[in-house]
């Protein structure tokens, strides 16, 4: 495999506050491959923003290191670090546009920093405005734009210096669902057409589902699990992963009596009527407690919680049927989440 574009090794971050030390991150190890869309998800306060800010050294880690194209950011002199940052665009939840500059001058800003001639910068800015679909807003000021338009300008600005990576910290969290969709679509398109590596920080599963290839789940300053979105979605292993992905389903399992199982659809079985076949084959009724499927990267993923018949023999028959049909399932207990 080629060298990852970003390598995070044993990274930790402690904040010194008046009330003592706050550990925001600990022992983070991640490799981000060039050209992928990588998601980082976690609950509020998990350390996501701190992590993404460590990637471009806006926050200097207290332990470990961050390598960009094999070179450690910590060992760079300030000028080299600034140049490296120009290879990593960043977009924010609050857009952070310069309010006193017009749209086109906002996009020219990072080019001004590198000393690009004005006319050249303007030309590039106009191209980018076209990419993000805002040619007609070149002369407008941020105050005259909607949230979605502001984020498009921010994306164009982040792309101005031809970065290899774009870091997005909750880039869609301030936007409505439709606008979110279009911004995510734009990011995906940029990833595909320009080959820019995209790192997305979010607390919303939907964002990960929509565009990410791989995802890291971060919980209480640590990475809980990392993997392909399709794999983690169909079978989250960590407790936090189950909570985030199974959500309601994880909590449905309170009432009881007889045994309950969770059947996992990993994209293969969803085309066949699993439950109906099982009922017909085993001649026993099952009780569907919860079902959820979704489209992940083009295949149907999902899970269903089924209550087995009270009779042990019948229940075993149903389980054997699932085993022989190679349909993944797991038994769920009352306290399971």
């Amino acid at each position: 495999m080629e060298q990852p574009i970003i390598q995070i090794k044993g990274l930790g971050k402690e904040f010194q506050t008046t009330e003592g030390k706050v550990r925001a991150l600990g022992d983070i190890n991640l490799d981000i491959q060039s050209g992928e869309v990588f998601g980082i998800i976690g609950l509020s306060g998990a350390g996501k923003s701190t992590l993404v800010r460590c990637i471009n050294f806006l926050e200097v880690p207290t332990e470990g290191e961050v390598l960009f194209e094999g070179e450690s950011l910590g060992s760079m002199n300030p000028a080299r670090l600034r140049r490296t940052r120009q290879s990593m665009g960043m977009i924010f939840q609050q857009f952070n546009l310069l309010a006193q500059r017009s749209v086109v001058r906002n996009i020219c800003f990072p080019l001004e920093l590198t000393g690009t001639p004005k006319s050249e910068a303007k030309k590039r800015a106009m191209e980018l405005l076209k990419t993000v679909g805002l040619e007609d807003k070149a002369g407008a000021y941020p105050a005259q734009l909607s949230g979605g338009q502001k984020q498009r300008v921010a994306i164009a600005r982040a792309l101005a210096t031809n970065p290899k990576v774009i870091l997005c910290d909750e880039a869609t969290s301030a936007l409505d669902p439709n606008t979110t969709k279009s911004i995510l679509g734009l990011l995906k398109e940029i990833n595909k057409t320009m080959g820019v590596t995209v790192i997305v920080i979010t607390h919303e599963m939907a964002v990960i589902e929509a565009i990410c290839d791989r995802v890291a789940i971060i919980d209480k300053s640590q990475i809980a699990e990392v993997g392909k979105v399709s794999e983690i979605f169909s079978e989250p292993k960590s407790k936090i992963g189950r909570q985030l992905i199974l959500g309601d389903a994880a909590r449905q399992v309170k009432f009881g009596g007889s045994r309950q199982i969770r059947i996992i659809f990993d994209g293969r079985e969803s085309t066949e009527p699993v439950i109906s076949n099982m009922v017909l084959a085993c001649k026993t009724p099952v009780n569907i407690m919860y079902a959820q499927t979704r489209d992940v990267g083009g295949t149907a993923m999902g899970q269903m919680i089924v209550q087995l018949p009270g009779d042990e023999a019948e229940a075993d028959r149903a389980l054997r049927y699932l085993e022989t049909s190679k349909i993944p399932y797991e038994e769920v207990t009352e306290h399971d989440i």
Partner: peptide, 20 residues
């Protein structure tokens, strides 16, 4: 956040003062 954004684009302290 605006200062933060400028930093993320590789602005130096002087550039942040004069341009932001």
């Amino acid at each position: 956040g605006v200062v933060e954004a400028a930093k993320s684009m590789g602005a130096s302290d002087w550039q942040i003062i004069w341009k932001v």
